[in-house]
Design a protein around this nucleic acid. Sequence first.
DNA 1: TATTGTTATACTCTATAACTATA
DNA 2: TATAGTTATAGAGTATAACAATA
Lengths: 149, 149
Amino acid sequence: MIMEPLLLDRLLQIGDLFQKDMSRAFEGTPLSTARVHLLWALQDAGPSTQQTLARLCGVSPRNITGLVDALEASGHVRRTPHPTDRRAVLVELTETSTAYMAQMRRDHADLDAELLGAVSPEDREAVRRGVAAIADRLSALAAAEGGPS
Amino acid sequence: MIMEPLLLDRLLQIGDLFQKDMSRAFEGTPLSTARVHLLWALQDAGPSTQQTLARLCGVSPRNITGLVDALEASGHVRRTPHPTDRRAVLVELTETSTAYMAQMRRDHADLDAELLGAVSPEDREAVRRGVAAIADRLSALAAAEGGPS
DNA sequence: TATTGTTATACTCTATAACTATA
DNA sequence: TATAGTTATAGAGTATAACAATA
């Protein structure tokens, strides 16, 4: 009797594959998943203080200092003075990485289409609904156990 | 006009939530996702050499040395001499962590049921099929680009 | 007094390369 | 000569705590 993998196992596998894929895509570049996560947050939020980025990325402010240092050195972001608060800096994407992130967004959409294409047409809406429901449930479980951070 | 999140975004979100959930579950213990990954491999494969574990976990042999060192110190695994090859060691679960992993397997199944419960009954089979198809497609893409490692 | 970012320190995960003992 | 595991070294990501400048 063959054990079919659980739905959970498949979801974990998908998570692993995404991670490996990203690591592979960034090797030989100054980027990494953590750094791209920060760039992605900047693309969504626009110029932000490091405190804000720490919240958006879910890491410590100290960690943001290191990530921004690296991204500044590689020319992906720029630190500019905050217009009204002289303690703070605003971090923003450079022109180069604005274009880079726009391309990444397109690739992202392409991959979405590719994955959806792997699902038979009559299952697609159910998969959309189901995966969204699972994400919401998991999110609720995390909030319940971990406290509403 | 509201932008609905892509299926891909939902899957990425699920991956993140799993990671945060595990990190939270292991904080304050000597365990971590990398260490539990190794324990999980041992539960599936039985006593194994470190070379084998390196392949199963997808990390370098050197890395396994460190993980096994930590897990041995915390009493989760044991190094025993290989019966026929005096260069090699066999790593095996201790009694304590055999029980611990059995419990984790039950929790795993419970979570699977919980997540499936979040999906409406008429969507469940489609979601199972669809997620499996996505995992397979992603796996094929990784193999095509990354070379058949 | 509280907040922003940095310096100081430390731990985990990861890798490659050189070395030892065995095959 | 090739393989199993370790020592040596290095770098990224993460954290907390103490400190400076500013609010």
